[in-house]
Amino acid sequence: MRCQQVRRAWLEPELSAKARRHMQACPACQREWELNRRLNEAFSGWEVERPLPAEWDRRLQQRIATARTGWRGWLESWRWRPHPQPLRLAAGALLLLLVAGAGLYVRPRWFSPRAVKPASTGIVRDLQALNQNQEILQCPLFAGHGAGDLANGAENMN
């Protein structure tokens, strides 16, 4: 048996025969055992007997009264319990319904679809180009010439 195991065995209410045999033969463990005895003496000398302040009880009552009516009492009364009362269950369900209803009422306003800009496709671009050409043909430079004149002009150039 190793020294560490023996010292760990000191935590048990009774020492085993094996641990006792080790201790009889091990001076290091005997020294530690003596230190342990002195340690226990030192522990028994640590007294903390002091009277609690006179106002301690009154202050506790005050704190209880404040907490009972304050937010801590309210919070505690709402904490989880293994056997919830029917009234609490009904109140919880009502609260849930109110929240869900408010959510449904508010949601359409937040997420209403806005005017979506149509995607610029090839056909749209062609139509826009035709519009622009028509505007050019209507400008003063080409005033009086129809589309047929332009076509004749093109043939003459050839």
């Binding site: 209880i64 907490a67 009364s77």
Partner: peptide
């Protein structure tokens, strides 16, 4: 105080 407040639990 905590014992008092959490007595139900």
């Amino acid at each position: 105080l905590r014992v008092y407040l959490s007595r139900r639990r």
